[in-house]
Computed example of a mutant assay.
Amino acid sequence: MGVKMRELRYSILADIQDAIEQAKQGKLALFWQRTIQREYSGKKVTPDEQQAYEQLQSILSEVLQWSGEEDLRHNMENIGGRVWFCHFWIDHDSMVQLTEDRNGRFHVAYVLDRNTSPEIRREAALLAQKELAECMQEWGVLLLDAPAPEQMKYASLAEATSHLMQVLNDPERIIG
């Protein structure tokens, strides 16, 4: 006797409903708006999903939402961390960030949108590099002479910034 398995279909309804709650509070950053939009446009939607998505779009048109930077700062403060540096681009899905967790370990994260031209990616990397260099000067942090290892966490701000600078030097290798 065989058991008939129902094919599970991923529903984005729960994600859209979460997004609606965030959007009502003005706390749905552009990154998450785009993520929902990509998921929604990439699948056959149910009437419930369509109705929820239309409700979300209506809220987004009426309620000003916070920036990616505000979202990141809020999330880091909630876990006892700190944002040292971040840049989110509005015209494409790229971001660069340098954060410190509550244990004093530094983290770097970066994404350059692969749907942009190589020139735009290079321009984004150069802008982030320039801004990061200005911050490093303010912090009194010098670039390390030796290459910083590529790892998840860094013990010092100098290691983390040096790694991020090296990555931004080679924007073609950053996968977005």
Rank of each mutant, 00 (worst) to 15 (best):
E138M: 07
K24V: 08
Y154A: 04
Q65F: 09
N115R: 10
S67R: 00
S162E: 00
R9V: 11
E54T: 13
V96Y: 00
L157W: 01
Q50V: 14
G80A: 12
A23S: 12
D170G: 01
N78K: 10
V141Y: 05
P47A: 15
A14F: 05
K44T: 14
T46G: 03
A109F: 07
R82E: 07
V83S: 02
Q51P: 03
P171I: 09
Q25S: 09
D101Y: 07
L142F: 03
I20T: 05
R38P: 11
K130P: 04
P47M: 12
V3P: 06
A155D: 15
L164T: 00
I90T: 10
E7V: 08
A23R: 14
P147F: 10
Q17R: 15
E62A: 15
A19R: 09
K130A: 07
F31I: 02
A29D: 09
F31L: 03
D71W: 15
E7F: 04
L64R: 14
L28H: 04
A19L: 03
E49G: 02
P47G: 11
E7K: 07
D48F: 13
V108W: 00
Q151E: 15
D145P: 05
I120E: 13
G140W: 01
V167C: 10
K130C: 02
L132R: 08
Q17Y: 13
A125L: 04
S58A: 06
K43Y: 09
V3K: 11
E100K: 01
F31C: 00
A128K: 07
P171G: 10
P118H: 05
G68Y: 06
I59R: 05
I120S: 04
D18I: 06
L143S: 10
R121L: 06
Q33A: 01
H92W: 04
P47C: 12
E77T: 14
R114L: 09
A160K: 05
Q166I: 01
E77L: 10
A125F: 08
Q33C: 04
P47I: 11
S61Y: 05
E69G: 03
V63M: 10
R121K: 13
S162F: 00
H107L: 02
F31G: 00
D170E: 13
S117H: 09
E119H: 05
L112T: 08
V167K: 04
A52V: 08
P147Q: 08
A29C: 13
A109Y: 12
F31M: 03
L28Y: 04
Q33V: 15
Y10H: 10
P171M: 04
N75Y: 14
T116F: 00
M1Y: 13
Q25Y: 14
P149G: 06
I120T: 13
S94H: 05
R105E: 07
R105Y: 09
P171W: 13
E138P: 03
R38F: 12
D145Y: 03
V108A: 00
P147D: 08
I79L: 04
R9N: 11
H163K: 12
E131L: 15
S94P: 06
D91K: 11
